[in-house]
Design a protein around this nucleic acid. Structure first.
Lengths: 135, 135
DNA sequence: CTGGTTTAACTACAGCTGTAGTGAGAGGAC
DNA sequence: GTCCTCTCACTACAGCTGTAGTTAAACCAG
């Protein structure tokens, strides 16, 4: 259970725009560039070339993979959302809270003012993830 | 109590290095550049000019203020840590969790495996910040 | 006063990011 | 076969970041 996978620790950081693209790829992979461009089109209004450039850069960073299909490429997420969320969360914690989780949690909880139901849910999650072996 | 200060909503984002500098300034303001350089020296090994450049940029962004004192400047944080933590947290939530707090909380709790004592503390904090007016 | 030390100002430069233009090759419409 | 269209590859360029070098002004030791 507590395998500390040191292995695939992603060393990359995604820019905000890249997160948006990746979100689409985590929802559905593989996809041709065109589908991504279309999917993005409603909210973000990116030039098609912009999307392609970002895909190319994500390829370089090896965050996405591409397979040739006929005359085009099909892009897939190469790293799991989980991995990148972990990386980004650590970097956030490190930067903003000096790596300390507790103040961060406190900050979020205080900000958000959860409803009593949500509080109950959080407590349940806390219990499920409590680690009795610690102190 | 619930003054929703729409006012000074900081529109800036700090880079990782800038956070480190600001951390020092939140601990003690005002300070001359030299003290900051010294304080940084142990862990980070930044060239003095690097620190000064960063200060200059933070000045431009109006995140720090400087007052002339004799032949040098004394730098002070111009924005509260609180404000910048808020800004950074929102941007983080937005980017990584699409703005949804709950999955973020769940993520952090699951990652960190708190000790039972910490779990108790978190529950206390949850209770203190529960908002019964919400559903 | 004169030169060394410190501060501050300006300049440099590479890598990343956001955003796109341009050109070349491949496939389909006629 | 010829031309239009789409995909991809390459290029561009400005703004931000990390990291510092250079220059000029100012102050203190002698």
């Amino acid at each position: 259970m507590s395998r500390n996978k040191q292995k695939g620790r992603p060393n990359v950081a995604l820019s905000p725009q890249e997160w948006k693209l990746m979100t689409l790829l985590w929802e559905k992979s593989p996809q041709p560039a065109y589908d991504l461009i279309e999917a993005l089109a409603p909210r973000e209004k990116w030039h098609p070339n912009t999307v392609r450039t970002m895909l190319a850069r994500l390829l370089q960073k090896r965050v996405v993979r591409a397979e040739r299909y006929k005359n085009l490429y099909l892009y897939s997420a190469a790293l799991s959302r989980e991995d990148l969320v972990n990386a980004e969360s650590s970097s956030f914690l490190e930067r903003v809270f000096g790596g300390a989780l507790r103040p961060a949690l406190i900050h979020f909880v205080k900000k958000q003012r959860l409803s009593p139901e949500e509080v109950e849910e959080m407590k349940r999650i806390l219990d499920e993830n409590s680690d009795p072996s610690k102190s």
